[in-house]
């Protein structure tokens, strides 16, 4: 019997290392026809801002080789709508419901974090300092160590549960940013957010996205994400949550071996809405095959 439990700090316990990446899984409800939501380690709900946001104009998506670009731009109805309407619907799902908190000013981040802090059944937030699709969509904070320090330390003062900081790959040294997050009070870091990319329709001589550039995700980003998780895990002491192109149990195990304590599945949910439970099962099978008692023993077990 393999022990799948992942113990992150500040009382955040995952029943298995598989979570869903924000913006790819709605509020969980969109997937309840396909899987038993209680069988996954956590659900990172859609990026939530202080006020309602309409997001970017259509078209917001372009398929690219083994991946896709998106430019949604944090469309959401704001934190009050989440608290009043969505939270009551999802709070009793038997998994960790984690709110991805986005903003454009430090005050906004803090205001949202404070409101989520009051929600009993939300054990953690993921601070999105890395959305590439909105002006000051956090990426302004997320690409410098001083920006990370400002926003993370400010949120830390108003939020006392598990604080995950989601890092941008669109930087020179992601490990430096992870260290800045750790020094500012983050309980864990998740990486990577999408890579800034672009697609062009040559026939029409026009960009495929209304915003010209957008965030790249899907299987194509996996080697980059894996490398960054490896670098960050070596640099920090806090747990690392790995994501970026994970589409199978093997992919997930690679991230754990590189140093991730848990993983998030994003774009693969679009192709197989039941992928999360398959990955969780596949990790257990791998452990059985290799005589590993605890899934957590895989973390950083890469032999180099």
């Amino acid at each position: 019997m393999v022990n799948e439990t992942i113990q992150l700090n500040k009382g955040l316990t995952l029943k298995n290392p598989v979570m869903t990446a924000s913006g790819t899984f709605g509020y969980g409800e969109e997937y309840s026809d396909f899987i038993d939501l209680s069988q996954i380690g956590g659900i990172l709900v859609k990026g939530t801002t202080l006020n309602h946001r309409e997001g970017n104009p259509y078209p917001r998506m372009a398929e690219t080789p083994s991946g896709m670009l998106n430019a949604v731009g944090l469309q959401n109805k704001g934190i009050d709508h989440f608290v009043e309407t969505i939270y009551p619907r999802i709070k009793d799902i038997d998994t960790n419901i984690i709110v991805n908190v986005s903003g454009s000013t430090i005050e906004d981040y803090c205001a949202v974090a404070e409101k989520v802090n009051a929600l009993e059944n939300i054990p953690a937030i993921e601070l999105n300092v890395s959305c590439p699709n909105v002006k000051q969509g956090g990426m302004a904070f997320g690409v410098t160590t001083s920006g990370i320090e400002q926003v993370v330390s400010a949120v830390r003062k108003v939020y006392d549960k598990h604080l995950i900081v989601k890092l941008s790959p669109n930087v020179t040294s992601i490990a430096d940013l992870a260290l800045a997050a750790e020094a500012s009070g983050a309980d864990s870091v998740s990486l990577i957010n999408t890579l800034l990319g672009m697609a062009i329709d040559a026939e029409k001589r026009r960009p495929k996205l209304s915003t010209i550039t957008g965030g790249l995700s899907g299987a194509c980003v996996k080697p980059i994400a894996l490398r960054m998780v490896w670098q960050v895990a070596k640099a920090v002491k806090i747990p690392v949550i790995g994501l970026g192109g994970i589409s199978s149990a093997t992919d997930a195990i690679e991230f754990l071996l590189a140093g991730a304590s848990a993983i998030e599945i994003g774009t693969a949910n679009f192709i197989d809405p039941a992928i999360t439970v398959k990955v969780a099962k596949g990790i257990v099978e791998y452990c059985e095959r290799h005589g590993i008692k605890n899934v957590s023993d895989l973390t950083g077990a890469l032999e180099v």
């Binding site: 913006g23 997937y31 997001g55 259509y58 998506m61 998106n70 949604v72 469309q75 679009f270």
Partner: peptide
Amino acid sequence: ENLMACGLGACLCCVENTIEGHVCVCK
């Protein structure tokens, strides 16, 4: 028939701008 990724109302890519703002064509 807007371009879509998930088809489930999760990714918010296929939006149509309506009198109610952006809504998912898929959902």
